[in-house]
Structures are given as structure tokens and as C-alpha cells.
Amino acid sequence: MKISNSEIGNAAWDARVKLTPGEVEHLLDCSQKILQELNLVQKDNLDSIKATFFGHEQPGSLREDIITDSLPLAKVLANSLYADEFCFHVPKIIEE
């Protein structure tokens, strides 16, 4: 499968990064290569194989519904340059 320039553009937008034309070019090239190699990999019929999404097979765990301390407000906001005494600020959002 061929990857197009615009696909790279869309993916960059979805990752919320802006690439230079040179970067798009290079990424296109690299993607094409690795995906080609992957296509070779796919010659093995993998459809009947279960996918592994996790680092191991140990089942997940559960936690009791017990309240623990939240972060003090000062610490919550400490790493943000765009906050008032309670809230973080983002550029104005007008939805309706």
C-alpha cells in the first residue's frame, strides 16, 4: 500500500504537530520503507493469530473505592504558566 503526502499531513494534524515539507518528505520515505518491510512480514498469514497488546499475561487488578488525598491546589497549578487561582486557562472556546 502506498502512503500519500496528504496521509502524512493528516496524521501530523491528528498528532497536533506541524511538519516542514522536508520532514514530510523524509517521513514519507521512512514510512514507505518500514511499511514495505512490514508487508513482507504480512506474507505470513497472521489472521488466525491473536494479537498481543500487553507486556505480560497477568490479569489486571482492582482497587477498593476508598478516597485518597488529592493534590493540594498550589501543586496542581504549580507547573502551569497559564492559570488563575483555581483554573487552567486555554484560548477561548466557542462551541455554539
Binding site: 497559564y82 488563575d84 483555581f86 483554573c87 487552567f88 486557562h89 486555554v90 484560548p91 477561548k92 472556546i93 466557542i94
Partner: peptide
Amino acid sequence: TIISSPSSRVDF
């Protein structure tokens, strides 16, 4: 108001 507000504030 939403119109006069310079930015939106977020509460998590």
C-alpha cells in the same frame, strides 16, 4: 460571559 471572556478556564 462567553463573549467577553478572554480565555476559557478548565476545571478537572
